[in-house]
Computed example of a mutant assay.
Amino acid sequence: MLADHFPLVGLRLTTPRLELRLPTPEELADLADVAAAGIHDPAVMPFLVPWTDRPLADVARSVILHHWLRLGGWTPQAWSLNLTVFREGQVVGLQTIGASDLAVTRTVSTGSWLGRTHQGKGIGTEMRAAVLDLAFTGLGAEEAVSGAFDHNVTSYGVSRKLGYVDDGTKRHAVGGKLAVERRLRLTRADWERHRKIPVTIEGLTPCLPLLGAS
């Protein structure tokens, strides 16, 4: 079985409304369709790499290629886990968690996107809470970091709701224009104080060596 060689296919995170896991090939195609249907206002770019500015077919294909790229380049020392987010069996978005030298740094980073038709319903908060529980409860992390451009008030609001605090800024050139990123950091203590969403983690133990957390 595939799980015998790559146990991350058996990892499941569940919250009251959501399930997060690696997708099947057909579900990956559904995820690509969600991205192509739109995940943000076209007039505002929330990503450092403006991958959503391309033709719709390219946007969809880039989701698939990025998924394969992250799995193909996997090492326990440096990894990025792209979990597809499901609500009532329907693909709604993507939640990423990653780390470098986790056993030493005890730090993870997160990123995400959500189909526009699913926004404004608290799903973004719930899916981030799921991977934070994986980080702090499952992997023994001490800190989680994230970031959002200063115009991305929704992402910033999710972070603050979950206990993140400001951690400086960084200036980027995106599409030839200045974009200021607001860095955010969440400690274990702040996560515990703000933890409200119940999360169930299944299939983690055999994944720990691949996540650099054994």
Rank of each mutant, 00 (worst) to 15 (best):
residue 11 L to E: 00
residue 138 G to Y: 02
residue 180 V to K: 11
residue 60 A to W: 02
residue 94 L to V: 06
residue 168 G to I: 10
residue 68 W to G: 13
residue 112 S to Q: 15
residue 122 G to F: 06
residue 65 L to E: 12
residue 178 L to F: 13
residue 80 S to E: 12
residue 100 S to W: 06
residue 66 H to T: 10
residue 167 D to Q: 09
residue 115 G to N: 08
residue 163 G to L: 04
residue 56 L to P: 01
residue 139 L to E: 01
residue 34 V to E: 05
residue 76 P to N: 02
residue 159 S to N: 12
residue 212 G to A: 06
residue 150 D to L: 11
residue 208 L to P: 00
residue 105 T to Q: 08
residue 129 A to C: 05
residue 157 G to Q: 11
residue 24 T to E: 11
residue 208 L to C: 00
residue 19 E to P: 01
residue 128 R to P: 05
residue 20 L to A: 05
residue 201 I to C: 02
residue 205 T to W: 00
residue 111 G to M: 13
residue 188 R to W: 09
residue 47 F to P: 07
residue 67 H to C: 02
residue 3 A to Y: 05
residue 129 A to I: 03
residue 5 H to S: 06
residue 199 V to D: 01
residue 172 H to E: 11
residue 176 G to W: 10
residue 194 H to Y: 13
residue 129 A to V: 05
residue 204 L to D: 01
residue 26 E to Q: 04
residue 2 L to I: 09
residue 199 V to E: 02
residue 109 S to W: 10
residue 113 W to Q: 12
residue 180 V to I: 15
residue 166 D to I: 08
residue 114 L to I: 15
residue 104 V to C: 13
residue 52 T to S: 14
residue 173 A to I: 05
residue 204 L to S: 02
residue 111 G to Q: 11
residue 140 G to Y: 05
residue 132 L to F: 06
residue 104 V to Q: 14
residue 193 R to W: 03
residue 112 S to I: 03
residue 121 K to L: 15
residue 162 L to M: 04
residue 57 A to V: 12
residue 29 A to H: 02
residue 119 Q to C: 05
residue 75 T to G: 11
residue 187 T to N: 08
residue 136 F to L: 07
residue 30 D to C: 08
residue 207 C to K: 03
residue 84 T to D: 09
residue 164 Y to N: 07
residue 169 T to M: 14
residue 62 S to L: 09
residue 116 R to D: 14
residue 91 V to N: 04
residue 104 V to D: 14
residue 137 T to L: 04
residue 20 L to E: 09
residue 131 V to M: 13
residue 155 S to P: 10
residue 181 E to Y: 09
residue 95 Q to S: 05
residue 111 G to L: 13
residue 131 V to Q: 11
residue 165 V to H: 10
residue 191 W to R: 00
residue 213 A to I: 01
